[in-house]
């Protein structure tokens, strides 16, 4: 069992989770993730590492289904059943490049260790975060610390630029030279960003989130098609070149258990609230 040191709602539906661990920090690198399981009956789910130290690891998660609902109900002092990591391949590091980093929903948190690492390697970091509305943006100060330029985008215009991530991307790429684009967040965001940068021919690295179970390369549920070849998201990724991803396949594979997930959540809520 692993002790919860903190669980804090950062913005509506998005929570920070800090769990005690003295093993994971030793090899943890930017871009890697952990697998967590709330209790003995729980599912194993992957979450990006957003930070780590000698005593703990931190994750940022969005509340959606049963598993994340269970995590959202945790408080300091509670315990979770499983915590394993670091998993996946770390972000490929570059030196002295100009990198445009984009994040949305939980990806704003997931961006944090990556831009920190990019900055430490003397890259020029341009950070842009997006949300539907101002009240869903977070961690601006933390991100600014490692960013040379910083942008906020909201669909309703309540903060920063108004529009979608692709509006911003098109505008920025038209007027600026960039070596690499890096994107963290939901599949729609990674997909849209990749399609927007494609005509510019700028390499675009995206963090993918296929369904996982073991996350060590044992089950193959996380398979994604990259450049026509089947890869395992958990060990060959989770970061891939967005221009090579078979998005249609990824989007449909993420829906395999939609029916069961809805059922699971209503079952959980009935059990919990009667």
């Amino acid at each position: 069992m692993y002790k919860v040191l903190k669980r804090e709602k950062i913005v509506p539906n998005i929570h920070l989770l800090v769990i005690e661990s003295d093993a994971i920090y030793k090899n943890a690198q930017a871009g890697e993730f952990v697998v967590v399981r709330a209790d003995e009956r729980g599912e194993r789910i992957p979450l990006n590492l957003v930070d780590w130290d000698k005593n703990s690891v931190s994750m940022m998660f969005m509340e959606i289904g049963t598993s994340t609902r269970k995590f959202a109900a945790l408080k300091a002092g509670d315990e979770i059943a499983t915590l394993v990591g670091p998993l996946g391949k770390p972000t490929e590091m570059t030196k002295g490049k100009k990198i445009l980093c984009l994040g949305g929903c939980y990806g704003i948190g997931a961006l944090y260790p990556v831009i920190r690492a990019f900055k430490e390697q003397d890259n020029t970091v341009v950070t842009a975060i997006e949300a539907r509305s101002a009240y869903l943006l977070y961690w601006q100060e933390k991100l600014k610390k490692y960013s040379d330029e910083f942008y906020e985008i909201t669909r309703d215009g309540t903060q920063g630029l108004q529009g979608h991530i692709n509006d911003f991307l098109q505008e920025y790429l038209r007027t600026n030279a960039v070596d690499l684009v890096y994107v963290q967040g939901c599949t729609y965001l990674t997909y849209l960003s990749s399609e927007t940068t494609r005509p510019y021919g700028i390499k675009t690295i995206v963090g993918l989130n296929p369904i996982m179970v073991d996350a060590t390369g044992m089950c193959g549920v996380c398979r994604v098609i990259i450049n026509g070849e089947t890869k395992f998201g958990c060990v060959d990724g989770p970061e891939f070149d967005g221009h090579q991803v078979d998005w249609e396949n990824l989007l449909s594979r993420r829906k395999i258990y939609l029916k069961e997930e809805v059922y699971s959540l209503s079952f959980y809520e009935c059990e919990k609230y009667g």
């Binding site: 030793k26 090899n27 499983t82």
Partner: peptide, 13 residues
């Protein structure tokens, strides 16, 4: 448990 050799620690570690 929950310890992936090659990730959490390598054999050399």
């Amino acid at each position: 448990l929950d310890f992936v050799v090659g990730k959490t620690a390598t054999i050399d570690q």
